[in-house]
Design a protein around this nucleic acid. Structure first.
Lengths: 235, 235
DNA sequence: TCAAAAGTGTTCCTTCTACACCCATGT
DNA sequence: ACATGGGTGTAGAAGGAACACTTTTGA
């Protein structure tokens, strides 16, 4: 881990390809983003470089995993930029990485900080752009995919799921409509476990039926037809 | 142009960042893809390298523009890959590029060929992957954006628009529903010109009201709310 | 007058939205 | 008994899908 940390910082080296990573997790169903604080450049995102024979996706998982202490539940490439600052045929490939709060920790990097996503202020222009875009994409995907799966623990209540959506989307949703939509989608399975906590009726625990839900992807019905493995991202 | 052609080929140099470009156009309302034929590697896509202080998007437009003979109507970054073949911290950034058939030509590169998109067979694995993904993305975007704008001439009939959709989507759509949907979206403007050709009733010519239609983007209504500049790509 | 494409409405069904009360529990 | 969050149904609106005939022109 120590050896790769030296490869992970971008303070001194000037690599050809940099990865910029935006880790998200829920803490008490509030969305948090992982970042570095108090670097010479202020608050920055996590960066790193792929190894010589490592795919970009693998590198993204490895690097963010080292910082957080365990592998992410889910990663997705966002965008590749070649900015003014990153001239000379150097590019930055950005990734979103989702974590389950509950996951057993390895040894997280002490320099990693978590802040509520809505409050994170990033000084560097490129990093801020990447972060803003990551948040927009996460929100948008909440609407038409099961991406929330990757943020939640294996068992959860519908109220917890709803709170997650509300926090990420930034507004409230109707309880009955939300429950109907979620259960009707067929991707939730009601278990026989109950969560009893507090002086009120216990809640049924649910789990997700699948890891990701191809049917929940976009494509209006009139456009759909010959479909096979249409999606990676989609967006 | 000659000077940049040498920078455009990737046969001899081994750059740090390669762009892979997938040009599309309509020919008689059939979708065609641009490519190189009979290279040492068989049929391949167009590739090139960004200049030292050039953004990736600019480079994509410049390179594909040199091959086709004029600038594309529209480009969009697809995905960045670091494959086995592209090891050693080299990456390939792929772009889709849309052209209007009618556009006045500069001097297209003689090596560029156009083939019906449904029939193009690419030997190289990476190029084939990029092409397949480009086609999937183009189809998906037809469903929920105005991306067809960038393939059509400034004035067109509703039947032509429908033929375009049918060819790209690969299946037929209902004429009345299609027309209602398109006109109801408010993005089409009926002009006073008519196209009279053939022994039948003349067709009204339409144009697009805007270049791209943010309202036509995805995001289910229950998820929407605090929206600003939510889209670049999406999916 | 015929062939060929342009153009046009309605019904049904599904899906979304708005909205308010009872239930099971712990203290 | 009361406070707390869990859980449920319905009516109205909007949007999508299926479906067939009339219109205008050139030959």
């Amino acid at each position: 881990m120590a050896e790769s940390h030296t490869a992970t910082t971008d303070d001194h080296v000037s690599p050809h390809v940099t990865l910029i990573l935006v880790p998200f997790r829920l803490s008490d169903f509030v969305l948090q983003a992982g970042h570095r604080a108090n670097t010479p450049f202020g608050t920055t995102l996590i960066t790193g470089n792929p190894g010589v024979h490592e795919s970009l996706d693998d590198a993204a998982r490895r690097i963010v995993g080292q910082w957080v202490g365990h592998e992410p539940q889910y990663t997705e490439q966002l965008y590749t930029l070649g900015t003014d600052r990153i001239a000379r045929r150097e590019v930055a490939v950005s990734y979103i990485a989702l974590f389950r709060e509950d996951a057993r920790s390895g040894t997280p990097d002490a320099r990693l900080h978590w802040s509520p996503a809505s409050q994170l202020e990033i000084s560097d222009d490129v990093h801020r752009m990447v972060f803003d875009y990551a948040l927009v994409r996460l929100k948008a995907k909440m609407g038409y995919t099961n991406i929330a799966y990757h943020l939640l623990p294996p068992l959860f209540t519908l109220s917890e799921l709803q709170r997650t959506y509300e926090h990420v989307l930034g507004h409230q949703v109707d309880k009955r409509n939300f429950r109907r939509r979620m259960t009707a989608a067929g991707t939730l399975v009601k278990t026989h476990q109950m969560r009893r906590e507090g002086s009120h009726r216990p809640a049924a625990m649910y789990r997700f039926a699948t890891q990701d839900d191809p049917a929940a992807y976009l494509t209006p019905s009139w456009a759909a037809a010959s479909y096979a493995t249409a999606n990676d991202d989609d967006d």
